[in-house]
C-alpha cells in the first residue's frame, strides 16, 4: 500500500482510471495526531495485573478459588464454588473473604488504568450470580450491604445504559440498588426515596426536555425534608443545569457512583459533594 493515494488504497480490482488527488506519502501523520492510548499502554507493558493485586487476594481455600473466579469474570466457577462454600460457611464470610476481594482487585486495576470496562462487567456478573444464589438460599437481606441507592431514568426517557453501568459498579461495591427502571414518573422516585431511605438517589436523562424532571424531584424531596445527594448524569445533562437546583450533583462517568455513595454514607452533604466532586469522585 505504501505510496499509493487514497482513491486506490485497499480497493481491489477497480483502480484503473483513477488519478491521484492527494499523495499519501507526502503526509507525515505523526505531525497531525498522536495515539496517546498506545503510548500510555506501552508504559504499562511490563506490569502483571495479578502481581499488582496479590496483596488484596486471599491465599487460603476456598476463598482463593472464589476470588480468582470473580477476578477473571468466570461466573460458572464463582457460582459452583460459592454453592460448595455455602454448605460450610456463613454467607457473610463467603462475600467478605471470597467474592468481595476478587471484585475489589478488578476495581483497583480499573481505577489504576490497567483494566477496562468489559473486565469489570464480567467480574461483576460473576459476583452477582454468586450473591443472587446466596440470597435465594438464605433469603434476601441476609447478605449485608453497605447501604441503599435509588436509581432511575427520567420520565419520557428510555436511555438507561448509563444507569445500568453505574448500577453494576454500585452492586459490585456492595451497595443495595433500588432500580426503578426507565421512564419513571417524578412521584414514583420521591415515593421510593421515602420508602427506602437511601444514602443517595440518581437520575439519568438524554434529552433537554426530560431532564427537567430532576429539579421537580429535588423540590419534592426538600419539601419532605429529605436532603440526600441527587446524582444526575446522561447525554443532555451538564453541570450548569444540575447546579441550578438544590441536591443536584453532576456525574460524568458510571464508575464514579460508588465513590459518591461512600461520600454520602459518610454524611458529606450534597453541597459539599457538588463543590468537591473532582476530588471525591473524579471522572
Amino acid at each position: 500500500m505504501e505510496g499509493r493515494e487514497i482513491g486506490w488504497a485497499m480497493v481491489e480490482g477497480i483502480i484503473a482510471g483513477l488519478k491521484p488527488s492527494v499523495k499519501e506519502e507526502a503526509i507525515d501523520f505523526d505531525k497531525i495526531f498522536v495515539r496517546y492510548n498506545v503510548l500510555e499502554e506501552e508504559k504499562k507493558l511490563g506490569l502483571k495485573p495479578e502481581e499488582l493485586v496479590k496483596d488484596i487476594m486471599p491465599k487460603d481455600e476456598p476463598w482463593k478459588t472464589i476470588a480468582y473466579a470473580v477476578f477473571k469474570g468466570d461466573a460458572k466457577t464463582a457460582l459452583e464454588e460459592t454453592k460448595k462454600a455455602l454448605e460450610k460457611f456463613p454467607p457473610k464470610e463467603i462475600v467478605d473473604k471470597g467474592l468481595a476481594p476478587g471484585m475489589h482487585a478488578v476495581s483497583k486495576l480499573y481505577d489504576d488504568g490497567i483494566y477496562y470496562l468489559p473486565q469489570v462487567m464480567l467480574s461483576a456478573d460473576a459476583m452477582s450470580a454468586a450473591v443472587q444464589f446466596i440470597e435465594q438460599k438464605v433469603g434476601a437481606g441476609k447478605v449485608e450491604k453497605k447501604g441503599k441507592v435509588v436509581m432511575h431514568v427520567a420520565e419520557g426517557d428510555i436511555h438507561d445504559l448509563g444507569k445500568n453501568l453505574a448500577k453494576v459498579f454500585l452492586v459490585a461495591d456492595g451497595w443495595e440498588v433500588i432500580d426503578l427502571g426507565r421512564d419513571v414518573p417524578v412521584d414514583e422516585v420521591v415515593k421510593a426515596v421515602e420508602k427506602h431511605k437511601p444514602v443517595m438517589v440518581t437520575g439519568t436523562a438524554l434529552m433537554t426536555t426530560t431532564m427537567t424532571a430532576f429539579p421537580k424531584i429535588a423540590k419534592k424531596l426538600i419539601e419532605k425534608g429529605i436532603k440526600i445527594p441527587f446524582i444526575c448524569g446522561g447525554g443532555a445533562v451538564n453541570e450548569d443545569f444540575v447546579n441550578t437546583f438544590e441536591l443536584g450533583v453532576i456525574a460524568k462517568k458510571a464508575h464514579q457512583a460508588p465513590k459518591f455513595a461512600e461520600a454520602a454514607k459518610k454524611g458529606i452533604s450534597w453541597s459539599d459533594l457538588r463543590a468537591k466532586w473532582h476530588e471525591i469522585a473524579p471522572a
Partner: peptide, 22 residues
C-alpha cells in the same frame, strides 16, 4: 475530499473503516 479524509483516516480504527475507499 482527500484532505478531509486523511486528517482522520489513521487517527483511529473507526475513521479508517469509514474513509471512503474502505
Amino acid at each position: 475530499r482527500d484532505l478531509l479524509t486523511y486528517s482522520d483516516m489513521y487517527r483511529d480504527p473507526q475513521g479508517l473503516i469509514l474513509s471512503y475507499p474502505n
